[in-house]
Amino acid sequence: METLLRVEDLRTQFHTDAGLVHVVDGVNLELKKGEILGIVGESGCGKSVTSLSIMQLLPKGIGKVTSGNISLEGKDILAMSKSELRKMRGSQISMIFQEPMTSLNPVFKVGDQIMEAIRFHMKLSKKEAKSYAIEMLTKVGISRPESVVDEYPHQLSGGMRQRVMIAIAMACEPKILIADEPTTALDVTIQAQILNLMRQLQQEKGTSIMLITHDLGVVAEMCDRVVVMYAGQVVEETDVKSLFKNPKHPYTKGLLASLPQLTSESDRLNSIPGQVPALDEMPVGCRFAPRCEFRMSVCETSNPALLDTGELHNCRCHLYQEEGVSS
């Protein structure tokens, strides 16, 4: 499959109270045409920052990409001018966010917010844009779209607002949709509806989706491939089946073990001991070493590289370093 988006050795720096820290530290990603790539990790592991780096929407003066490459169909995003970036955002890559309640501007009509993107990218007239906006609302499963188009966000439920966000994001038929925890703030039945809608649109238009989540259930349901991130780095990358069947990195194993099992005898949930290291106190060696049950002496002194352990299953762990080298 053709690679649409390639992120190479991305390092993104943030100004924090503790000084300058790298929130994303050497991330490599590839998003292929038409696939759904899951990015999984705990809060603060750098998954959202990675997506904002791709969009070049890092908070000004606080976050900055310091090195690496991001290319969209061979074009370097980091070298794009402001106007090139604007043309890319919303038409080539668009984004939906975690909080549908706050992601729409409260003082403008829903329709105007959809039409804004349509008019800017597709150069439609006001009238054409409005009928297209209504068409988009119908597509995302909103009943009575003709009246919703003239309503304000506060008149809609959370699920409906997320549908509106999807309508805005999909309006200009982008090549890539970045969905940053799109269902986290919604209740479970609505979650399933929104995920189904995303998959349906993805199948119709062949859009590639980068689905950022901490919910392994969502990953299993939706994704083709998965990237697991820990403390600003990719620790494992593979297709979704191998991830659940044959997880390699101890962190991934820990994550899967923490999922509640209906068949399990124990009435306590498993959890990974310890905490994610603070950004300004990253261990010298493997970043997961302090919490790892398979820790070896080498883990505390050197950070392993992300290597292919066979069958396109990449893992960043000393347990597999030799396998990686040999394969």
Binding site: L57, R86, G90, S103, L104, N105, P106, Q113, I168
Partner: peptide, 15 residues
């Protein structure tokens, strides 16, 4: 700092 400002930027709006 609100989310909807980020949304507007993500749509490609001029600053």
């Amino acid at each position: 700092g609100q989310d909807y400002i980020r949304t507007a930027r993500a749509k490609g709006m001029r600053e």
